[in-house]
């Protein structure tokens, strides 16, 4: 009951292997797929309601709470169809303008900026996702080759650590690391000592570096954490496959390439698909903290646009339109990603 596995190695073997495909159908961030339960549907009768009044008392107020805090805010979407001025008081006193704000955001004066914002969001997310996935797979393969278990455990614990630091701290560390040597910028220091550059690089004022900085910082923060599921998937590979390959004379790299990688392929595919459902929803903090006026053209993402341009500058209507756009696209993406993952799950995992 209270077993607290110290490392993934122990844990993965504690868990029934049948669970590992199930693991792979979820992203670590917490997107559970709804699974049809096989329990019979309970009939609703007056007697049952009376008999279950305590259960109802435990559940229904919290249901109301959830509806109030997660669904009721949709009334705020009406701002999208108004020329919202905070000075006019509540949203019932505003002037209705139909789809004017939508036209403005997608084609009008703000159209160009918004298109750039969408491109930045997708670009930063895709780059981070690809770099992060490749990095995590490589690290999982290398960790899997470490036979000294205490050493492996120490490595895992060190690489998981940044996952628990807040984005504010990580952005703060990144801004110091990337600054001038005089401000403690050790990356520039290293580059200059090695002789790669003569002058310190102005990382955070050059727009073209920004997507790379976002991907790199994400990699640093989540690299170790993202290996957990791949390591679990590797543990689930039938060892007799490796033994058979050894008998056939396969070396280390052949085994990696021909057994381990195909073995975790379903996990890779499912995680990629599920994470791609969140492409418009990731990358908020880093662009917000590290982005500045000089690099806004590459740094500003949808969420930053909503917070800066909408909330902080009072352009509520446009920000809500951008938010609606994001929510609807995200639902479509997450929905189809989940459907795709489910189909793949059935075909390749079971």
């Amino acid at each position: 009951m209270t077993q607290a596995p110290v490392s993934t190695v122990v844990t993965a073997s504690d868990v029934e292997p049948a669970l590992v495909p199930a693991i792979s159908s979820r992203a670590p961030g917490g997107k559970a797929r709804k699974k049809k339960t096989k329990d019979p549907k309970p009939k609703i009768t007056w007697d049952r309601i009376k008999a279950q009044r305590v259960l109802l008392l435990m559940a229904v107020p919290l249901l109301m709470y959830q509806i109030l805090f997660k669904y009721v805010p949709v009334y705020g979407w009406s701002i999208a169809f108004q020329d919202y001025k905070p000075g006019r008081g509540s949203i019932w006193n505003q002037e209705w303008v139909g789809f004017e704000n939508f036209v403005d955001l997608f084609t009008g004066v703000n159209g160009e900026r918004f298109r750039r914002v969408v491109v930045n969001t997708v670009g930063q997310s895709v780059l981070s996702l690809l770099v992060g996935t490749v990095g995590a797979i490589v690290l999982a393969l290398l960790l899997n080759e470490v036979k000294n278990l205490p050493f492996k455990r120490v490595l895992q614990n060190i690489t998981y650590m940044p996952h628990f630091l807040s984005w504010v701290i990580v952005a703060s560390l990144a801004s110091v690391a990337l600054s001038m040597p005089s401000s403690g910028g050790f990356i520039n220091q290293v580059l200059m000592n090695v002789g790669l550059v003569d002058e310190p690089v102005l990382f955070l004022t050059e727009p073209n570096y920004f997507w790379g900085i976002v991907a790199g910082t994400n990699l640093w923060k989540e690299l170790g954490w993202n290996t957990i599921l791949y390591l679990a998937a590797i543990t689930a590979i039938d060892p007799s496959q490796y033994e058979a390959a050894e008998v056939d004379g396969a070396g280390r790299y052949r085994k990696m390439w021909n057994i381990t990688l195909p073995g975790i392929r379903p996990t890779i595919v499912v995680l990629l698909i599920i994470n791609s459902g969140w492409i418009l929803s990731t990358n908020f903090e880093l662009p917000y903290f590290l982005g500045n006026g000089l690099i806004a053209e590459k740094a500003e993402t949808i969420d930053v646009f909503v917070l800066r341009y909408g909330y902080q500058l009072g352009n509520y209507s446009l920000a809500v339109v951008a938010g609606i756009f994001k929510t609807i696209v995200a639902i479509i993406l997450v929905g189809s990603a989940n459907a795709a993952a489910k189909r793949l799950n059935q075909e390749t995992l079971v």
């Binding site: 949709v74 979407w77 701002i79 920000a319 929510t327 995200a330 639902i331 997450v334 929905g335």
Partner: peptide, 8 residues
């Protein structure tokens, strides 16, 4: 999956 958004 569903979020009404920051301003709402």
């Amino acid at each position: 999956y569903f979020d009404a958004g920051l301003i709402p």
